[in-house]
Amino acid sequence: MNQETEKQALLRALLKGSRENASQVIKQFIDQDHTIIDLYEYLIKETMYEIGYLWETGKISVATEHLASAIVENLMNEIYHLIATPEKKEDLAVICSIENEQHQIGSKMVSDVYEMNNWNTRYLGANTPKNDLIHFVKSINPKMLALSMSLFFHLPELESTLQTIKKELPGLLIIIGGQGLKHGSQDFLKNYQNVFYKPDLFSLDSFLKTQNQHD
């Protein structure tokens, strides 16, 4: 999909700090019959990666990066009416970014994909302390847990969370994703049953759809 024009327009709006313009770009994109997953993967994700590159190469400040994230999170809230489905199943999923992980836009998108597949969700956001997560999960007994990790150096935290869950909540289905698991860093997962790596929203969506068929 070539969404270069829209990407440039969204990038300009975010750099300018104009929530209004950014909202307009999103609205037009959706009006062109693109799906929410297309919007997330091709427009918002790509534009945020570009924002990251501009910070990395010293072209924008941390403040501008924060501004862009804040606008994007607002835009995602604005389109919630397109995500919420009236016919919820009984299934419940808990979604969060792991302990110390401050990046939460990816996990918020993941939560929306569950909702679009008629799941009930509890989205806990960024930096969820391991012990609190375990208590919370025990208290509401979800069918799935989805964890996001953006930085490779949070792998020890991810593994420690998986180990605790294996002991205390054996059998819980866990989906993990995020940029920190690129380049084969997810290989250690073969030591875990019930833990699956999904690199993007498309693969998560297909996985949830096959789950729906099994129900």
């Binding site: 990395e56 190469t57 010293g58 490779f152 150096f153 949070h154 792998l155 020890p156 690129k182 380049h183 084969g184 860093s185 250690f188």
Partner: peptide
């Protein structure tokens, strides 16, 4: 710490390039 534990050559190289550039 993470590299020592989960040895991953591609991540090691890509991250150092990223650090240098940034």
């Amino acid at each position: 710490s993470s590299i020592l534990k989960y040895k991953n050559t591609a991540v090691l190289i890509e991250t150092i390039i990223w650090v240098f550039r940034t």
